[in-house]
Amino acid sequence: MFWQQFLQQFWQQLVNGVTLGSTYALIALGYTMVYGIIQLINFAHGEVYMIGAFTGLILVTVYKVNFMVAILAAMLVCVPLAILIERVAYRPLRRSTRLAPLISALGVSIFLQTLVTLIKGGPNPLAFPQVIQDTVYVLGPVRFSTVQVIILVMASLLMVFLQFTVKYTRIGKAMRATSEDYETASLMGINVNRVVSFTFAVGAALAGAGGVLVGMYFNSIHPFMGVTVGLKSFCAAVLGGIGSIPGAMLGGIFLGIAEVMGVAAGFDTYKEAIAFGLLILVLLFKPTGLLGLPIQRKV
């Protein structure tokens, strides 16, 4: 009896965890790709995700568009935004100290949060309306809601598409080469600035989609939503091995499951610490993350 109940809960929590985790993964991909190429923790990435969510909200409430259109539009808004952020706040600092771009990223992050708060007229959360009829599908011991299915499908599609782009296209090849060795890649005639812009664009598109999906899932968005989700997604990227695209997906889903299971196991009051605790543990035993390549010490 107990066992049966436990199993039922376990499968349900697993589904919840994977759903949550795939949203982390979508955002973690942006962090990992940017870090892989220019070794920068893009702290403003969480804000790109937040702006994606707000774009989606405006579109579905004011223009009453279909949620798929909203996702696409959010991606289209986030792409130029991220390219602009890179141009203004990071590119001039590429040859600077390691801390300078970090502080600059924090500045962008604070700027965007405040800007959205001002435009919106307060930090209170806004309701994200129900855009699709939310029915519940029962599959064995597990209940799926329509939104959960959409998130899982969309996230998988986007990740497959990303993997394809990186593996088989010309620009993908250039990305991999740049991430391998920035200097050499530029010597080989790769326009690294274009590659960096492209990387930011792809990351932003994923984050924008993630923002709308999260808005649909949790029905609430606010100007500071990018902060904790951003930090946790970065944790996910490091967990999986920063710079590694499959690593970010794995890390995100792993983190989502760990959080949901941790709450279910009664560690709910420590929820915010789970991601960071895991991160520290993984870093201590395998500093490069689950799928990361060994760090080279260059003399």
């Binding site: 919840n16 949790f218 904790t228 949901v260 299971m261 709450v263 279910a264 709910d268 915010e272």
Partner: peptide, 19 residues
């Protein structure tokens, strides 16, 4: 059940209540 402020995902807690 306990939840956290600014949290938006309560599926774990509600699943526990559903029993």
């Amino acid at each position: 059940q306990s939840i956290m402020e600014k949290d938006t995902n309560f599926s774990a807690q509600v699943t526990a209540l559903s029993q």
